[in-house]
Protein backbone atom coordinates (compact mmCIF):
# COMPACT_ATOMS: atom_id res chain seq x y z
CA UNK A 1 0.00 0.00 0.00
CA UNK A 2 2.70 2.39 1.14
CA UNK A 3 4.89 1.44 -1.81
CA UNK A 4 2.14 2.08 -4.28
CA UNK A 5 1.47 5.42 -2.70
CA UNK A 6 5.15 6.33 -2.90
CA UNK A 7 5.23 5.24 -6.53
CA UNK A 8 2.24 7.41 -7.33
CA UNK A 9 3.71 10.35 -5.45
CA UNK A 10 6.95 9.91 -7.37
CA UNK A 11 5.18 9.92 -10.71
CA UNK A 12 3.13 12.98 -9.89
CA UNK A 13 6.03 14.98 -8.52
CA UNK A 14 8.16 14.13 -11.55
CA UNK A 15 5.26 15.07 -13.78
CA UNK A 16 4.83 18.34 -11.90
CA UNK A 17 8.52 19.22 -12.26
CA UNK A 18 8.49 18.55 -16.00
CA UNK A 19 5.24 20.46 -16.30
CA UNK A 20 6.63 23.58 -14.65
CA UNK A 21 9.83 23.55 -16.69
CA UNK A 22 8.11 23.13 -20.04
CA UNK A 23 5.09 25.29 -19.44
CA UNK A 24 6.71 28.22 -17.71
CA UNK A 25 7.97 30.17 -20.76
CA UNK A 26 4.66 29.67 -22.49
CA UNK A 27 2.66 30.78 -19.47
CA UNK A 28 4.86 33.83 -19.12
CA UNK A 29 4.32 34.56 -22.79
CA UNK A 30 0.57 34.06 -22.54
CA UNK A 31 0.20 36.19 -19.41
CA UNK A 32 2.23 38.95 -21.01
CA UNK A 33 0.00 38.87 -24.07
CA UNK A 34 -2.93 39.94 -21.88
CA UNK A 35 -1.13 42.94 -20.41
CA UNK A 36 -1.44 46.51 -21.63
CA UNK A 37 1.81 48.00 -22.94
CA UNK A 38 2.76 49.89 -19.80
CA UNK A 39 2.53 46.73 -17.69
CA UNK A 40 4.79 44.59 -19.83
CA UNK A 41 7.96 46.06 -18.39
CA UNK A 42 7.82 46.99 -14.77
CA UNK A 43 10.63 47.75 -12.36
CA UNK A 44 9.42 44.82 -10.24
CA UNK A 45 8.20 41.95 -12.43
CA UNK A 46 4.53 41.15 -12.05
CA UNK A 47 3.25 37.75 -12.96
CA UNK A 48 -0.41 38.60 -13.52
CA UNK A 49 -1.74 41.58 -15.43
CA UNK A 50 -3.45 44.07 -13.11
CA UNK A 51 -5.67 45.00 -16.03
CA UNK A 52 -6.46 42.14 -18.41
CA UNK A 53 -6.82 43.24 -22.00
CA UNK A 54 -7.20 41.77 -25.46
CA UNK A 55 -5.60 44.84 -27.03
CA UNK A 56 -2.46 42.96 -28.11
CA UNK A 57 -4.53 40.34 -29.93
CA UNK A 58 -6.64 43.01 -31.55
CA UNK A 59 -3.47 44.75 -32.72
CA UNK A 60 -2.12 41.53 -34.22
CA UNK A 61 -5.36 40.77 -36.03
CA UNK A 62 -5.84 44.36 -37.20
CA UNK A 63 -2.49 44.27 -38.90
CA UNK A 64 -4.04 41.81 -41.32
CA UNK A 65 -2.39 39.03 -43.20
CA UNK A 66 -2.40 36.61 -40.32
CA UNK A 67 -5.25 34.58 -41.74
CA UNK A 68 -3.31 34.12 -44.93
CA UNK A 69 -0.04 33.22 -43.14
CA UNK A 70 -1.99 30.76 -41.08
CA UNK A 71 -3.47 29.11 -44.15
CA UNK A 72 -0.07 28.92 -45.85
CA UNK A 73 1.57 27.39 -42.82
CA UNK A 74 -1.25 24.89 -42.37
CA UNK A 75 -1.18 23.76 -46.00
CA UNK A 76 2.59 23.47 -46.04
CA UNK A 77 2.77 21.65 -42.72
CA UNK A 78 0.01 19.20 -43.61
CA UNK A 79 1.48 18.37 -47.00
CA UNK A 80 4.95 18.04 -45.51
CA UNK A 81 3.53 15.61 -42.99
CA UNK A 82 1.70 13.56 -45.61
CA UNK A 83 4.59 13.50 -48.07
CA UNK A 84 7.08 12.84 -45.31
CA UNK A 85 5.18 9.88 -43.91
CA UNK A 86 4.53 8.47 -47.37
CA UNK A 87 8.11 8.73 -48.57
CA UNK A 88 9.66 7.70 -45.26
CA UNK A 89 7.47 4.65 -44.72
CA UNK A 90 8.15 3.29 -48.20
CA UNK A 91 11.88 3.71 -47.73
CA UNK A 92 11.77 2.34 -44.21
CA UNK A 93 9.88 -0.71 -45.36
CA UNK A 94 12.45 -1.46 -48.02
CA UNK A 95 15.23 -1.05 -45.48
CA UNK A 96 13.52 -3.20 -42.88
CA UNK A 97 12.52 -6.12 -45.07
CA UNK A 98 15.13 -6.35 -47.81
CA UNK A 99 18.88 -6.74 -47.98
CA UNK A 100 20.30 -5.04 -51.05
CA UNK A 101 23.53 -3.36 -52.14
CA UNK A 102 23.73 0.25 -50.99
CA UNK A 103 21.41 -0.24 -48.04
CA UNK A 104 23.83 1.01 -45.40
CA UNK A 105 25.05 3.73 -47.74
CA UNK A 106 21.51 5.01 -48.08
CA UNK A 107 20.96 5.01 -44.33
CA UNK A 108 24.07 7.10 -43.85
CA UNK A 109 23.50 9.28 -46.91
CA UNK A 110 20.27 10.72 -45.60
CA UNK A 111 22.06 11.66 -42.40
CA UNK A 112 24.88 13.44 -44.18
CA UNK A 113 22.92 16.51 -45.15
CA UNK A 114 21.98 17.07 -41.51
CA UNK A 115 25.64 17.37 -40.67
CA UNK A 116 26.23 20.51 -42.68
CA UNK A 117 25.51 23.94 -41.26
CA UNK A 118 22.71 25.55 -43.21
CA UNK A 119 24.71 28.71 -43.92
CA UNK A 120 26.82 27.06 -46.59
CA UNK A 121 23.87 25.24 -48.18
CA UNK A 122 21.51 28.16 -48.38
CA UNK A 123 22.92 29.91 -51.48
CA UNK A 124 23.14 26.74 -53.62
CA UNK A 125 19.67 25.74 -52.41
CA UNK A 126 18.36 29.15 -53.40
CA UNK A 127 19.87 28.73 -56.85
CA UNK A 128 18.24 25.30 -57.30
CA UNK A 129 14.87 26.60 -56.17
CA UNK A 130 15.15 29.52 -58.57
CA UNK A 131 16.12 27.28 -61.51
CA UNK A 132 13.22 24.95 -60.78
CA UNK A 133 10.88 27.93 -60.48
CA UNK A 134 10.01 26.93 -56.95
CA UNK A 135 10.62 30.26 -55.23
CA UNK A 136 7.40 31.66 -53.77
CA UNK A 137 5.61 28.34 -53.96
CA UNK A 138 4.16 25.82 -51.56
CA UNK A 139 5.81 23.02 -53.47
CA UNK A 140 9.32 24.38 -52.92
CA UNK A 141 8.90 24.55 -49.18
CA UNK A 142 7.13 21.18 -48.99
CA UNK A 143 9.99 19.50 -50.87
CA UNK A 144 12.61 21.20 -48.73
CA UNK A 145 10.92 20.38 -45.45
CA UNK A 146 10.18 16.80 -46.48
CA UNK A 147 13.81 16.26 -47.39
CA UNK A 148 15.14 17.78 -44.20
CA UNK A 149 12.75 15.90 -41.90
CA UNK A 150 13.20 12.60 -43.75
CA UNK A 151 16.10 10.98 -41.85
CA UNK A 152 14.28 10.75 -38.56
CA UNK A 153 11.15 9.31 -40.18
CA UNK A 154 13.11 6.70 -42.11
CA UNK A 155 15.20 5.58 -39.17
CA UNK A 156 12.32 5.59 -36.73
CA UNK A 157 9.97 3.65 -38.98
CA UNK A 158 12.66 1.22 -40.04
CA UNK A 159 13.12 0.28 -36.39
CA UNK A 160 9.39 -0.04 -36.00
CA UNK A 161 8.88 -2.25 -39.02
CA UNK A 162 11.77 -4.46 -37.94
CA UNK A 163 10.16 -5.09 -34.59
CA UNK A 164 7.08 -6.48 -36.32
CA UNK A 165 7.46 -10.18 -37.18
CA UNK A 166 7.35 -10.75 -40.94
CA UNK A 167 4.98 -13.67 -40.30
CA UNK A 168 2.28 -11.02 -40.00
CA UNK A 169 2.49 -9.89 -43.63
CA UNK A 170 3.25 -13.37 -44.87
CA UNK A 171 -0.02 -14.51 -43.40
CA UNK A 172 -1.82 -11.70 -45.21
CA UNK A 173 -0.01 -12.51 -48.46
CA UNK A 174 -1.10 -16.15 -48.18
CA UNK A 175 -4.62 -14.78 -47.86
CA UNK A 176 -4.16 -13.28 -51.30
CA UNK A 177 -2.92 -9.78 -50.60
CA UNK A 178 -0.11 -8.30 -52.66
CA UNK A 179 2.99 -7.22 -50.75
CA UNK A 180 2.01 -3.53 -50.88
CA UNK A 181 -1.49 -4.33 -49.69
CA UNK A 182 -0.12 -6.41 -46.85
CA UNK A 183 2.16 -3.53 -45.94
CA UNK A 184 -0.69 -1.02 -46.01
CA UNK A 185 -3.20 -3.19 -44.19
CA UNK A 186 -1.07 -5.01 -41.70
CA UNK A 187 2.15 -3.19 -41.02
CA UNK A 188 0.99 0.41 -41.15
CA UNK A 189 -1.78 0.09 -38.54
CA UNK A 190 0.49 -1.76 -36.14
CA UNK A 191 3.11 0.95 -36.52
CA UNK A 192 0.73 3.76 -35.68
CA UNK A 193 2.79 5.07 -32.72
CA UNK A 194 5.91 5.37 -34.86
CA UNK A 195 3.99 7.03 -37.67
CA UNK A 196 2.34 9.40 -35.20
CA UNK A 197 5.68 10.40 -33.70
CA UNK A 198 7.20 10.96 -37.16
CA UNK A 199 4.24 13.00 -38.28
CA UNK A 200 4.36 15.24 -35.22
CA UNK A 201 8.03 15.76 -35.93
CA UNK A 202 7.44 16.61 -39.58
CA UNK A 203 4.50 18.85 -38.77
CA UNK A 204 6.30 20.89 -36.15
CA UNK A 205 9.42 21.03 -38.28
CA UNK A 206 7.45 22.56 -41.14
CA UNK A 207 5.34 24.77 -38.89
CA UNK A 208 8.30 26.28 -37.11
CA UNK A 209 10.80 26.65 -39.91
CA UNK A 210 12.12 30.12 -40.55
CA UNK A 211 15.34 30.11 -42.58
CA UNK A 212 14.06 28.43 -45.75
CA UNK A 213 10.82 30.37 -45.67
CA UNK A 214 12.73 33.61 -45.21
CA UNK A 215 15.02 32.85 -48.13
CA UNK A 216 12.57 31.34 -50.62
CA UNK A 217 9.48 33.47 -50.06
CA UNK A 218 9.14 37.02 -51.34
CA UNK A 219 5.43 37.46 -51.82
CA UNK A 220 3.29 38.72 -48.99
CA UNK A 221 0.59 36.24 -49.98
CA UNK A 222 2.96 33.28 -49.65
CA UNK A 223 4.38 34.13 -46.24
CA UNK A 224 4.21 31.61 -43.45
CA UNK A 225 3.54 32.29 -39.78
CA UNK A 226 7.18 32.39 -38.63
CA UNK A 227 7.72 35.15 -41.22
CA UNK A 228 4.57 36.94 -40.14
CA UNK A 229 5.79 36.95 -36.57
CA UNK A 230 8.78 38.97 -37.70
CA UNK A 231 6.51 41.91 -38.41
CA UNK A 232 6.72 42.85 -34.76
CA UNK A 233 10.49 42.80 -34.57
CA UNK A 234 11.34 46.15 -36.07
CA UNK A 235 14.60 47.73 -37.05
CA UNK A 236 14.51 50.11 -34.09
CA UNK A 237 11.95 48.64 -31.70
CA UNK A 238 10.39 45.36 -30.67
CA UNK A 239 6.64 45.33 -30.15
CA UNK A 240 6.63 43.05 -27.14
CA UNK A 241 2.90 42.71 -26.57
CA UNK A 242 2.04 41.73 -30.15
CA UNK A 243 5.02 39.35 -30.32
CA UNK A 244 3.64 37.51 -27.31
CA UNK A 245 0.06 37.47 -28.59
CA UNK A 246 1.14 36.30 -32.04
CA UNK A 247 3.29 33.56 -30.52
CA UNK A 248 0.35 32.26 -28.52
CA UNK A 249 -1.80 32.18 -31.66
CA UNK A 250 1.07 30.48 -33.44
CA UNK A 251 1.35 27.73 -30.85
CA UNK A 252 -2.26 26.67 -30.52
CA UNK A 253 -2.81 24.89 -33.87
CA UNK A 254 0.08 22.54 -33.20
CA UNK A 255 -1.52 21.55 -29.93
CA UNK A 256 -4.73 20.78 -31.79
CA UNK A 257 -2.77 18.65 -34.25
CA UNK A 258 -1.12 16.88 -31.35
CA UNK A 259 -4.44 16.14 -29.66
CA UNK A 260 -5.66 14.65 -32.93
CA UNK A 261 -2.75 12.25 -33.31
CA UNK A 262 -1.85 11.60 -29.68
CA UNK A 263 -4.29 8.70 -29.35
CA UNK A 264 -2.33 6.93 -32.06
CA UNK A 265 0.84 7.42 -30.09
CA UNK A 266 -0.24 5.05 -27.38
CA UNK A 267 -2.92 2.70 -28.64
CA UNK A 268 -1.51 1.38 -31.88
CA UNK A 269 0.25 -1.68 -30.66
CA UNK A 270 -2.37 -2.82 -28.24
CA UNK A 271 -4.84 -3.14 -31.08
CA UNK A 272 -2.30 -4.67 -33.43
CA UNK A 273 -1.08 -7.13 -30.86
CA UNK A 274 -4.59 -8.30 -30.19
CA UNK A 275 -5.19 -8.74 -33.92
CA UNK A 276 -1.85 -10.44 -34.44
Amino acid sequence: MMRRFLGKAGIYSAAAAVLVFSVFPFVWMALTSFKPNEEIFTAVPRLLPTRWTLAQYRYVIDRGGFGRYFLNSAVIALFTTLCGIFVASLAAYALARFRFPGRTVFLLLILVVQMFPLVVLIIPLFIIMRRLGLLDSYLGLVIAYTTFTLPFGVWMLKGYFESIPSSLEEAAMIDGCSRMAAFARVIVPVSAPGIAASSIYAFIGAWNEFMFAMTFINKESMRTLPLGLQAFFGQFTVEWGPVMAASVIFTLPVLVFFLLVQKRLTTGLVKGAVKG
Binding site: I204, L229, F250
Partner: peptide, 11 residues
Protein backbone atom coordinates in the same frame (compact mmCIF):
# COMPACT_ATOMS: atom_id res chain seq x y z
CA UNK B 1 5.90 18.82 -22.93
CA UNK B 2 5.24 19.78 -26.52
CA UNK B 3 5.02 23.50 -25.79
CA UNK B 4 8.71 24.44 -25.66
CA UNK B 5 9.22 22.65 -28.96
CA UNK B 6 6.39 24.47 -30.69
CA UNK B 7 7.01 28.08 -29.66
CA UNK B 8 8.75 29.77 -32.59
CA UNK B 9 12.50 29.78 -31.97
CA UNK B 10 13.03 33.50 -32.40
CA UNK B 11 10.21 34.33 -30.01
Amino acid sequence: VLLPWVIPKVA
